[in-house]
Design a protein around this nucleic acid. Structure first.
Lengths: 227, 227, 227, 227
DNA sequence: GATGAATGAGATTTCATTCAT
DNA sequence: AATGAATGAAATCTCATTCAT
């Protein structure tokens, strides 16, 4: 099978896996069922993905790629607009992407969770052997920071061009925007409903965006600390 | 064995389980090893916790309890101080608690992840049978919102007493503070190191706190949306 | 507790055990249930009977005793009648005893089955450790042959007094009567119904008795072999 | 694996199980050891036999089959001889088969013991859940009466052709022969030695056969009862 | 001797993963 | 690459038996 065919088949398998993981969750998903859903045998499934974890990581990988692409598209589509706007759009799209793709956002978070590193490099003690061997685990490490980098770059550009006026270090701000989004996603994912404690979650998103805007415009006194 | 003795023994078992989960992670942990660590047999272990998942949930339960207690202590210790300060302390302690207790924060996040509910009540399709049967899964649901409620209450009090000046609805703000903390925790947990992208994570925390203060003091224009 | 009291309690426990074994069979019977049925705790049960097998053997023991007593009574009650008649009555009572006491007959057969001996003494390789230690296992061995001996003795007496005319060795005949009865019991016990293959089992009993009578009266040519 | 291969493997496993049961008895036999003896894993063992009891019943099943085959062979080999002789040979072969195959005869007796039926159909109250689910338990019920039927048929033929002269109903006689054999087997199995009470067990067998011959030849007055 | 808890041994199950054809 | 069977590791369960108080 030539490389392209293989790519396509691999992709089709991931599609099937996504459907199964989506329906019953990682733990309950059986490799048997995924193989069946993909219309192949378990052995073939294993010839593509060497472990269940690797298969799951392929979804994380896809998620990072989609996110990267999404961020990249925003940058490209708005190359003539002020970076301030681009940054806000990216942040919003991050939140939207995740709230619209439960599986992708979970896969993303799960990856970052498993990928925990310690002072002395990767902390492999909690990793399954299957993860350590996983080729997607390796591949995803190469691209894991892409979305973050795109965002950080736009922030820096904005500071240079003057549309972003805050005094905060661009990396620190990006990190902050990232965590704010992650927290939002975590809440969205722990809820299935559009409201929680009678609060419409869209209001939460709006608040996050408004806050981002204020920070970026330098309207907020953030003291000595963060700069 | 009277109820108290049983409580103590159960607690001692959870101690042992924490040590094992901490050391090798949930997946790699063997019930046999946990039993051994607790100085009991596997069967006894099962007589206390009906499944590995239930045992893990007991740690989530403990985490929620500790967090609740921590929040409650702050409230009590500072009953004479302005609520603004109390709220900021709670937020800070949340971040500190989690960054200092990897296992607890993970157990907390894992619980909220699995506990996802849908419009039509709990979405059990992704739960393991073991979780559905888990008594700790039931118990934790009764207290899961306690920490959040404490925080929300202090925010509301602050608005009443005038130390908190923002125009934002107290629940919405609390939710925002909650997500900001969760995001911070998620990043802390995905990292083992005190810095990421050359950014000292303590700076991120400071930024979060400064931001919280500015919001609470009503220094930020959050527009119509969130109010 | 004095010896008599203990005897009585032990007996009451066996009563309870009989009821449980009768109801659900040896394998399905739980020591817990037996203790409950006897109105005592498991530990007390164990202080009387050191193992489930020993408890079961106490029923075998009781069965052998009852059988011995039954045979003895017949002998006594009919000391003035011809031995031929006594022998026939014993054989009949054996069959009746067993068909009326499923549990006793099974316990009897089970004991003889487990007690299998080899050329080099007892074949303990298939015995459970529990059986080897069982005190009832020891006690029953002392009396296991009593019923057989009574029968054999009456046969021999009958030959001496002339009411029994067969030429067959009394021990051989007794053994034969014994096996015929055992086979009958086995069939009775494997059936719960009074008929099998449309044959009324009482007819089978009648045939066995008629045959016994003919043999004892020397009406049957048994050739050189058995004598 | 085609059906035949599976049959062969299943058969090989039963071979191994026989060896283990033979050596240490049912209770002492461990599934692990049987698997090891068969050169497979426990899981594979379970994929063939769903429980230890089912595995044991497969031996009962094999025993019934072997007995049926043995009886059938005798009938075939002697189709030109008088049925009287065939019947006697069958009875003798039954006794020999069992005395030469301790495990088979025990498995046979155990099956009949557990299979006890009541007026209202099978009496399942004493059966283990494992037995109720056992596929061999189902299969053996279909063939359990085959050996008996063969014997009964030859007796009836003998009466028709005139080599068997007794007035007794053929079914009743067959049942009697059956019980006599079972009793003999029971004694053989409860003994490991060739003698008991100084009686050579072969003499017992001879006596049984001589008796059978006399009955079949109508030499014995069995009265009104049985006919 | 009574009680409730714990032990130990082994049966059974579940699945991801691998083997053999 | 496809198929069905097998493996291995660990979870879970059952129960007779024992311990501690």
């Amino acid at each position: 099978m030539n490389s392209q065919k293989r790519q396509e088949k691999e992709s089709a398998i991931i599609d099937a896996a996504e459907a199964v993981f989506q329906a019953v969750g990682f733990k309950n998903a059986k490799m048997d069922d995924i193989a069946k859903a993909a219309g192949i045998t378990k052995v073939t499934l294993y010839s593509y993905f060497q472990s269940k974890e690797n298969l799951y990581l392929s979804i994380s990988y896809r998620a990072v790629n989609l996110l990267t692409k999404s961020f990249g598209d925003i940058v490209e589509r708005n190359h003539h607009k002020p970076r301030l706007e681009v940054v806000l759009q990216i942040v919003e799209s991050f939140m939207d992407f995740c709230s619209q793709n439960f599986l992708y956002s979970e896969a993303l978070l799960d990856y970052f969770e498993m990928n925990r590193s310690s002072d002395s490099g990767k902390d492999e003690s909690k990793l399954t052997e299957a993860v350590i061997q996983s080729n997607y685990y390796k591949r995803i490490q190469e691209i894991q920071n892409e979305p973050f980098k795109i965002l950080a770059k736009e922030v820096a550009k904005g500071q240079n061009e003057g549309s972003i006026l805050m005094k905060v270090d661009s990396m620190l701000y990006t990190l902050h925007a990232w965590t704010a989004s992650l927290g939002y996603i975590k809440i969205i994912n722990s809820t299935g409903t559009p409201t929680i404690f009678n609060i419409d979650l869209s209001k939460l998103k709006q608040m996050n965006l408004k806050l981002a805007e204020q920070i970026l415009l330098g309207k907020i006194e953030l003291g000595e600390g963060p700069i």
